[in-house]
Amino acid sequence: MTNESQPSSKGRDEQWRIGVLYSRAGVTSATESEHFFGTVLAIEEINAAGGVAGHLLDPVVYDPKGDADEYRRLATRMLQEDDVTVIFGCSTSSSRKAVLPVIERNNALLWYCSIYEGFEYSPNVIYTGAVPNQNSMQLAAWLLRHVGRRFFLVGADYIYPRESNRIIRDIVEDHGGEIVEEVYLPSDADPASLKTVIDEIESVGPDVVFSTLIGRGARTFYTMYRERGFDPARHPIASLTMTEGEIRMIGPELCGGHIVAASYVNTLDNESNRRYLDAWRTRFGDEPASMWSEMAYNQVHLFARALARAQSLDTARLVEAVHEVEFDSPEGMLRIDPGNNHATLTPRIAICRADGTFDVVWESRGPVKPDPYLTTYGLAEFWLDGERS
């Protein structure tokens, strides 16, 4: 598959046409390229095995280049011109919200694999990424217990960072911690702005920095933080997003000691992950697999199982079917909660090693049901469950 590609007309009526809408350029190109690669791998595996019910998956692929208006325009093009009713795409909440009215108006189905802030439900979206009760809450509890109580929050200025920081602030302050500062920068923050933030971190001396910066700005921030002389073993940056691919881009030697909360890191020791990594390396060489690629891969396989059951790309039939299937994914058994269309996932906390891989230091005793509206907000159950350190 290539950008701006459409399948040939031969055999189209005998194939399952789907849309793929991830940015290969722009601020979020690193993470969305990983979404794209995971999607490619799953489609190729499914088609190599004969497709679904004897018909191949037939992808229509566009690159919105990180622009919200392009996401909306290209989604509209897929649905109205390309005869697509199922789209795998979007990474940020801004892009998802740009596309959502188009999806709902056309009664299509969006598969959204990124972590996000929750507080949303649509019958036209399957949300396969973690929501705050599957990552933020556990991270806050672990940091309060093992790192310290003084938090510095820095994020990109859009929906997900602001909502994530609101949740972190509530949890930290409700459990005896303190937010010493909360700062927002443009999504593609420049080095001068980042230097100002690092100056402030040095001035106030927090125990931990919680970062929801994204893209190039986030990578530059990690580099400048270490160059300033901060020791991650004593003053780590904690994140929900900084995983193996971007760690390699920054330089693993600069990232050892930093912390991530994620349902997947590629050092998980199970048979499904070993199969996935073998397939990944065969297809993409030494490009590291991460949460971004793994969840994109998972949702295509979950879709294929739902499609085999529904025998139709009709949205209502597919959604009903996806509630009845599961996928033995690299991170564990993946299911969609029929009450809210979100995934049941296993929260994990991991610390980056100097070689760019992660050691899992905490994981929940089992999968956690999604609670996108945070109807329960306690943390006591997370303090000791599954702790490894």
Rank of each mutant, 00 (worst) to 15 (best):
C352I: 11
I214D: 01
L41A: 04
V368L: 07
G332C: 00
S94W: 03
E173I: 13
D199V: 03
G356I: 06
S290G: 15
R281Q: 13
I115V: 09
T212D: 15
P370Q: 04
A141M: 05
F303I: 01
P338D: 07
H146A: 12
R228L: 00
G176A: 07
R365M: 09
A49W: 13
Q134D: 01
F151W: 11
I351A: 03
S9V: 13
G205V: 12
A321W: 01
H35D: 01
L268Y: 06
S211Y: 12
Y264W: 00
R73L: 09
T282C: 10
I201G: 05
F382P: 05
N340K: 07
W111R: 00
P132E: 00
A98I: 10
E381D: 15
L318I: 10
D170K: 14
R275M: 04
G26S: 07
G148R: 00
R353F: 05
R73A: 15
E387A: 04
A238T: 06
E120P: 05
G11S: 05
P252C: 11
S23R: 08
Y22E: 07
E32W: 06
T346Y: 02
V197N: 00
E294W: 11
A141R: 15
T212L: 06
I247D: 02
A316S: 14
S364T: 10
M291S: 13
S8F: 10
S263K: 15
K97N: 13
M224D: 07
L57A: 08
M242R: 10
V300Y: 01
L318H: 14
L57I: 07
D199G: 03
L56Y: 15
N266D: 15
L79S: 03
T39L: 03
L110G: 01
E200N: 13
L144C: 11
I159G: 09
H342Q: 02
R219V: 09
E381F: 11
G257M: 06
A53Y: 03
E34H: 12
M78P: 14
V60H: 06
H35P: 01
S293D: 05
L384N: 15
D199K: 12
T243Y: 14
N106V: 02
S33L: 01
I351R: 12
G245M: 09
I198G: 01
R234S: 13
G386W: 01
